[in-house]
């Protein structure tokens, strides 16, 4: 085992930060959703790393559930994106502000 735990966690942090920046800055809703997927994957990486280093396979179950949640979220999120596109003729998140106040 050559690679220390901190490398994996470092990779997870980097991916999480990239995902967060994507969520915060990109206007296209589809890309925002993709960035969210990156963030979730980084979290999965943390789970799996600790599972390996602690020798506890239990975390894999949680990863499995996270993947399920991510899939569900994408399905619903894309459905909402389609509806918003029908309404606004665009999928830009900053234009979907009709429900404010």
């Amino acid at each position: 085992m050559g690679v220390p735990l901190s490398y994996y966690i470092g990779l997870a942090v980097v991916l999480f930060t990239i995902g967060a920046i994507g969520v915060a800055t990109r206007r296209n809703m589809l890309v925002v959703l993709m960035s969210l997927e990156i963030m979730m994957n980084s979290v999965n990486l943390v789970f799996i790393s600790f599972a390996r280093f602690r020798g506890d396979v239990g975390a894999h179950g949680i990863v499995f559930v996270v993947i399920a949640v991510a899939a569900a979220e994408v399905a619903v999120g894309l459905a909402i994106a389609i509806q918003i596109f029908k309404h606004n003729r665009s999928v830009n998140v900053d234009e979907a502000d009709k429900l404010k106040y």
Partner: peptide, 30 residues
């Protein structure tokens, strides 16, 4: 958006630097 990017980078930096010296003591289990 500038604020978000700054915050995200700051979070990443702080977490990464904060964790490294803790995680050094972690060794892979058999």
């Amino acid at each position: 958006k500038v604020l978000s990017v700054f915050s995200a980078l700051a979070i990443g930096f702080i977490v990464a630097s904060g964790l490294t010296h803790v995680l050094v003591h972690f060794h892979a289990a058999s």
